[in-house]
Write a protein that binds this DNA or RNA. Sequence first.
RNA 1: GGAGAGGUGGCUGAGCGGUCGAAAGCGGCGGUCUUGAAAACCGUUGAGGGUUGAUCCCCUCCCAGGGUUCGAAUCCCUGCUUCUCCGCCA
Length: 423
Amino acid sequence: MLDPRLFRTELDFVTEQLSRRSFNFNPAAYLELETRRKDIQVRTQDLQNERNSRSKAIGQAKAKGEDVQPLLDQVQHLGDELKAAETTLAEIQTSMAALMEGIPNILDAAVPDGKDEAANVEISRWGNVPEFGFTPKDHVDLGTDKGMDFELGAKITGSRFVVLNGGLARLQRAIIQLMLDTHTAEHGYSETYVPFLVNADSLRGTGQLPKFAADLFKASDDPALYLIPTAEVPVTNIVRDVIVEAKDLPLKFVCHTPCFRSEAGAYGRDVRGMIRQHQFEKVEIVQIVKPEDSVQAHEELTQHAETILQKLNLPYRKMLLCAGDTGFSSAKTYDLEVWLPGQGAYREISSCSNFKDFQARRLQARWRNPETGKPELVHTLNGSGLAAGRTLIAVMENYQDAGGRIHIPEALKPYMGGLDIIG
RNA sequence: GGAGAGGUGGCUGAGCGGUCGAAAGCGGCGGUCUUGAAAACCGUUGAGGGUUGAUCCCCUCCCAGGGUUCGAAUCCCUGCUUCUCCGCCA
């Protein structure tokens, strides 16, 4: 959520900034609602004030043993009027909240214009795209005889699910272990284990609700619980309604969870293989920082994700997402795209975002600023460090040999129990 | 799943339907004292919002949502949640 004060003082700026995202914000409609809000709120508070002072007077008169009946007669009419005003105010505030919750974050000045991924800007490239003396296979062809079974996934559940057996299941686990160990031992993150089902308040806090309900799997109606689309949700919500002491910042969490996405609107895209599944494993890194530190933290966090790709010696490029491709809650996002020989293309394997105070305002996640002594909003950031399912694909495709066997990267061997080749 | 007891400020913990946003203690902050620190003493110390140039002032918040009342932390209902006991269970 954006700062309501920004709307009151810099409406033109907000409107202009939102248009960068092709978000159609109607300032006139906002102003009308805001004017009514102010009007009704002032009137309601006046009425409340009157009720309070009169009730207090009744109490005082009663304490002195005076006859309070005349006073009671005077307040007869107050109740209805006040109740009506309070009801109207609540309705307006609900409308205002709904409006505000549907408005995306303002983009960082560094974010380039553009309407879709074609306008993303390549920042850097790392590693050498491998030269094979043969036509490299994709992970589906490589995995068929090694325990990657999409038909079984479809039988047990449906499309976009997979079963992994033997070496490939172990390889995915090894990838996860490497990530967790690297982020805890080398990057200073604290390993966290969280619920995989979350309530609506948590999803509202990180921005998935109310706007993106269709992307979620709802697991229960009463109480309303949802499967997490990313560990970002439960982990960032650790600081919901919390005032963190300055000395405890930054908070850095790393968390491995499965992620569940309905992939509504992705029909027909990436239907082959493990690229886009309803369920996938991911290691997420999350930082809660002082506002002044978030720009630097964003660079570091992205670097932390890059470290994993470098340890696995997987070629990748770092992209700065353009205005149209940057997510709803994010002010600035870097995507890391790994080279997939089977597709002959770079594909997203990590997305690292600085949300600034957008999530924090929804979450009421604050820190006590020693300079002001007041609670102020923190900045939140997160990134995939990395998506484990896609990392598995990348390892398979980049480490294949002419015989269709998969060589285990050096960094993963300690986790593979002596196995150094699959196939 | 069954039975019972609770949810109050950063923490512990009082609170008869009426000057209660809330006693007291701890913690925090400031001061006195001290070479410095501790101790002691004095003072101060919740959050959000409206209005304002800034104060003042006003409103809301004692788990959440309803209700009763002129007036609710206090009474009633529902939900959530914590704890204890029994049952079941990885």
